[in-house]
Write a protein that binds this DNA or RNA. Sequence first.
DNA 1: ACACAATGATACAATTAGTACAATATAAAA
DNA 2: TTTTATATTGTACTAATTGTATCATTGTGT
Lengths: 141, 141
Amino acid sequence: MTEKRLTLLLDFHSGLPIYTQIVNQVQSQLANGMLKPGDQLPTVRALAEELRINFNTVARAYRILDEARIISTQQGRGTYITEIPPPETTEKLRRESLAELAQRFINEALRLGCSEREISRMVRDRLGRESNRSESGQVKK
Amino acid sequence: MTEKRLTLLLDFHSGLPIYTQIVNQVQSQLANGMLKPGDQLPTVRALAEELRINFNTVARAYRILDEARIISTQQGRGTYITEIPPPETTEKLRRESLAELAQRFINEALRLGCSEREISRMVRDRLGRESNRSESGQVKK
DNA sequence: ACACAATGATACAATTAGTACAATATAAAA
DNA sequence: TTTTATATTGTACTAATTGTATCATTGTGT
């Protein structure tokens, strides 16, 4: 009954593989509470149709998440968020995702001709701005 | 989905290399609005067939445009006009682009559930790795 | 003849899509 | 209740589409 809508936003020009984007976004939605243990994810076909992609691409993302013990896929039954997401594996996957994001950002910045100092400083700047924002108002619900 | 026709006119007697002609014409079409950020260019093979040339020549043109950050090529996906198109990097534009990149990166990282410290540290990590690599490495064209 | 740049040929890797199948659930039939 | 049929779900393998890498060939100038 608890079929999540699982609103995912794909960027087909980002250079990030679609299955990676799905993995990252499911992971992040679990991290920030939009998804909870026990929740059923859309079927590979349903999500594929909604995103206008092939269901194998969804299946690939689900398989990665399954191997990371984030979700539990069962043939003929469906796909669910793991009841007890092993912290160390979610942690691992999250760090990997972060590393991927970071590397990508850095590469693009470098190609833009930015110096490392510039990049580093910009990140510090923006991070500081973020923390100010969250201090003045809770976004969580 | 919106595959551009990308009408290119080659002059095989101009003495100008074909790949250079492709580079120039893509650039000018981007400049005068015939091409816009996000547009997908024809595949190397499709354009090659249309122009009756080898697809490696197209690939070479695309690679040059990619290095110039005009377009973004992704193996297995396709080739697109870069979303953030300011290679005309005045200092100001470059900083704005960097800010945009950084903000996007940070937002995604936060959505992943990463802490600010984690994000900051990951960027430092990766930047350090990058500088090691470039010590032995390549200079821009 | 030689050097070098441009182009072409071939093999490869990454991503996504297509097809057939197996496991499970659900409902109908006995 | 048990059995059977059908639909639903994920899986496995394969194909198609994309750009990449490397080397061979061609052509031009010295």
